[in-house]
């Protein structure tokens, strides 16, 4: 049962990576995508220059580099709908395998690409902006960046399930979520500047805890247990999101069967 599930996930992921290869080659990923990522992080880090504060430059650089992992993971919101265009949704519902499992696996290419580009942005841009990350200790943050990517991916799956019902909104929803997370999760300004209710919201969303852990490790001012607590919280947010997402996919399949909204063909 579990091995069947893993096999389905693997095939779904393979189809996701195949999509990815139709968009990027290694060369265009570096010259096109990575270049944009570096520019995006620099754009925000430059605000530190405008403010004339090296500390704030560092704050923005770290926050926006980690946001890249979240941003790319959120492409899952749009690419979940791609499965609909292939016409495979009714076939998946008719098949004994779970639609949810396929949809969970089919966008992991973003997770991989996001972790890579966020990491590269952080380590390539730091010297340019005069930020000392204190290597090699800083390398510990790479799995933490992956964790932020993963929990955001799981959260994105929830939205992907919702957008399956409103295909034309797929890019809008992904973008708004990304910008909201960018605003309230501590990437640009400390979470504490926001009203209490926004802080509470931020705490149950991805990025917030993971980013706090990353900042803690890089500043070397946070105790080991505190870092571990933040990591645990980020993992909990991710796992809970995954659960909700799977329930959402199941409901989509069920309600589609009832309403006849699952169309055959294109």
């Amino acid at each position: 049962m579990i091995s069947d599930g893993l096999r389905i996930l693997r095939y779904a992921a393979a189809s996701g990576f195949a999509d990815f290869r139709t968009i990027y080659t290694v060369r265009t990923w570096i010259t096109g995508w990575l270049f944009r990522v570096l520019c995006q992080v620099s754009f925000f880090a430059l605000i530190g220059r405008l403010i004339d504060s090296p500390e704030y430059t560092e704050y923005l650089l770290i926050g926006n580099a980690v946001m890249i992992a979240a941003m790319e993971s959120l492409f899952v919101v749009a690419s979940t709908s791609w499965e609909r265009w292939t016409g495979s949704v009714p076939l998946l519902i008719a098949a004994p395998a779970s639609l949810a499992l396929v949809l969970c696996g089919r966008s992991v290419q973003w997770l991989a690409s996001g972790t890579a580009s966020a990491t590269l942005a952080l380590f390539l841009l730091s010297p340019l902006f005069g930020v000392d990350l204190r290597l090699p200790m800083a390398l510990v943050v790479i799995p933490l960046i992956a964790l932020v990517g993963l929990s955001t991916y799981c959260f994105g799956l929830i939205l992907g399930g919702l957008v399956l019902r409103a295909d034309s909104l797929r890019n809008v929803v992904g973008n708004l979520t990304m910008l909201s997370l960018m605003a309230i999760s501590g990437a640009q300004v400390p979470v504490s500047v926001w009203p209490d209710w926004l802080q509470a919201l931020s705490a149950v969303l991805p990025v917030h805890h993971g980013l706090a852990a990353i900042r803690g490790v890089l500043s070397a001012e946070m105790g080991f247990t505190e870092v571990l607590m933040h990591v645990g919280m980020e993992a909990i947010v991710g796992t809970a999101s995954l659960g909700v997402a799977i329930l959402g996919f199941k409901r989509f399949a069920e309600s589609g069967r009832r309403s006849g909204a699952i169309e055959f063909g294109s």
Binding site: T28, T31, G32, F35, R36, F43, L46, I47, R49
Partner: peptide
Amino acid sequence: SARTFQNSLSYPFYILGGVLVPPALL
């Protein structure tokens, strides 16, 4: 290839266009 790079045009243009940080500070 232009279409592939469409997504990449935004932030370089924001930096060079001095959208937020004046060009003099670059």
